[in-house]
Design a protein around this nucleic acid. Structure first.
Length: 488
RNA sequence: GGCGUCAUGGUGUAAUUGGUUAACACGCCGCCCUCUCAAGGCGGAGAGUUCGGGUUCGAUCCCCGAUGACGCUACCA
């Protein structure tokens, strides 16, 4: 461990607000957050908005919303790079002053043209360093007189740059493979390469946990730390998340924004649990006494188990089925009281207003959560439990409530319930079974028919439990109306 | 093209880090339960660890090569 890592960890999540929080970003944020919480360190949020063209406040809000949704709270920030421009110029000044950076007067057009020529000629499209040996004083003069110039870092011509990556081990790049990258654009705005280093240094980052797509950028940053005489943070590169076709996850694969999963009725714990296990495993620490690995982990447990060592080296494929499984597990684990506000959001989204009391809602949720796959179920298939405003699933009607005799029997049974002296779970079942026998049909036929009449669905909890939940009045009313239910 | 990284069933991951009939979870199939559907219980199919060489008494694990995938290759981040 180097001297920086020995200090209390300080880690950050540094998204660029050029889009909403996507699943890859969410996972790196989660890993950083888990690491900070595990070690008792500090988690910092920094918005890298130096690309004014593509950044927007709306995207910043979207990112914050996504982070709040999966429960990632930050201790410092959000800091905005757009408000710290002076600091980057200071750092650039140091590099220029020590001769490790130089002004470049080549225009963007010239560079593009040379790049095209080099590629056409089969050469590597690297910057040709033509401004590198310009006289420093003369260059400074040109800049002072208003000539636009970018500032480039002077990469050593020989040797190699390496670091010890916390997940990949020792990584090394030959300096000759690197080009003299731009630190400050000609409009004075820093590039990513400069601003990350300046900020990570300034904000005292001990660990830089980010996507593996940054591995190739890392030597450029290591070189700056060295040029500045600063100690290196620990770099930990996290493998990428791919779509089912093994290409980088994109809108083509469906939802890419974290909030889209919220909209699909995924519960935050489920999403976080799923994400945590994509590219990370607790190893032996996550196993039970019988040797079976558990996978359903809450926030506290993930925090306890998390370590950089458990991060995988290879890219992972996003599997919707498994996410769905985590969702059912977590919906079942939530208390009805905790589920209710989440369900209310679903209702609001479709402008549905439940007509039953809160107590009845809680009771219904307690009964239904066992078989919910998504929060959306509560606003769709389960509507009949919360209001008389629900639809009959045509397939369910066709399957169990199509025959006229059955419809008539369900209606008649409804009338019997109405006339009965009491309405209890056992009594209702006994009544139904006796009625079925007298009419020469199997009890199951009436149970299934009544279920459709009462809930509109072929799928539901045990019929008699549902009856007690809905209450005699609704049950009777819906059963008596069985003959009027439309069917084809 | 150059540079870099990675490679265990369809998917996510394990394998006391050279000694296992290669394990667990998701998914899939079947059976049980049963008033439906889930859940649950039980069982099954599915990888000999990308391929080829080496080192070793012995390689998922170490070395070399190939292949493939992915990443980077901007005055984007």
């Amino acid at each position: 461990m180097n001297e920086v890592a020995a200090a209390k960890p300080r880690v950050r999540f540094a998204p660029s607000p050029t889009g909403y929080l996507h699943v890859g970003g969410a996972r790196t944020a989660l890993f950083s957050w888990l690491f900070a919480r595990h070690t008792g360190g500090t988690f910092i949020l920094r918005i890298e908005d130096t690309d004014f063209e593509r950044s927007s406040d709306e995207m910043v809000e979207g990112i914050l919303e996504g982070m709040r949704w999966i429960g990632l709270d930050w201790d410092e920030g959000p800091f905005y790079q757009s408000k710290r421009l002076d600091r980057y110029r200071d750092t650039a000044g140091k590099l220029l002053g020590s001769g490790q950076a130089y002004y470049c007067f080549c225009t963007k057009e010239e560079l593009e043209q040379r790049r095209a020529e080099a590629t056409a000629a089969g050469r590597a499209p690297k910057y040709d360093m033509r401004c590198r040996d310009l006289n420093a004083a003369a260059s400074a003069g040109r800049v002072a007189s208003g000539e636009p110039a970018a500032l480039r870092f002077a990469v050593p011509l020989e040797g190699a740059t390496s670091w010890e990556d916390a997940v990949f081990g020792r990584l090394e790049f030959q300096n000759e493979e690197l080009e003299d990258f731009v630190l400050l654009r000609s409009d004075g705005i820093p590039t990513y390469h400069l601003s990350v280093v300046a900020d990570d240094l300034d904000m005292g980052m001990t660990h830089v946990i980010r996507g593996a797509d940054h591995i190739s950028n890392t030597p450029k940053q290591v070189l700056q730390y060295q040029a500045l005489g600063a100690p290196l943070p620990v770099f930990a590169h996290v493998p990428l998340i791919l779509g089912p076709d093994k290409t980088r996850l994109s809108k083509r694969h469906g939802a890419t924004s974290v909030i889209a999963y919220k909209d699909m009725g995924i519960v935050p714990e489920a999403f976080r649990n799923f994400l945590a296990l994509l590219g990370w495993s607790p190893g032996g620490a996550g196993k039970d006494a019988d040797g079976k690995a558990r996978e359903v982990f809450g926030s506290e447990e993930l925090t306890k188990l998390f370590s950089l060592e458990g991060i995988s080296h290879s890219n992972a494929i996003f599997d919707n089925d498994k996410l769905g499984w985590f969702n059912t597990e977590w919906i079942r684990a939530y208390s009805p009281e905790k589920l209710l506000p989440l369900i209310e959001e679903e209702w609001e989204a479709i402008h549905f207003v439940p007509s039953v009391t809160r107590e009845e809602q809680i009771a219904a949720i307690a009964l239904l959560r066992q078989r919910a796959r998504s929060l959306r179920d509560f606003a769709e298939a389960f509507r009949g439990y919360f209001s008389d405003d629900f639809a009959y699933d045509p397939a369910a009607v066709a399957k169990f409530l199509k025959d006229e005799p059955v419809r008539a029997m369900v209606a008649e049974l409804g009338a019997r319930y109405e006339a009965a002296s009491e309405f209890t779970e056992g009594g209702a079942e006994a009544e139904l079974r006796a009625f079925a026998e007298r009419n020469g049909v199997k009890a199951g036929v009436l149970i299934n028919g009544a279920r459709v009449a009462i809930t509109g669905q072929a799928v539901a909890p045990s019929l008699f439990a549902v009856m007690m939940l809905l209450g005699r009045q609704r049950v009777v009313q819906r059963m008596r109306a069985a003959e009027k239910i439309a069917h084809s």
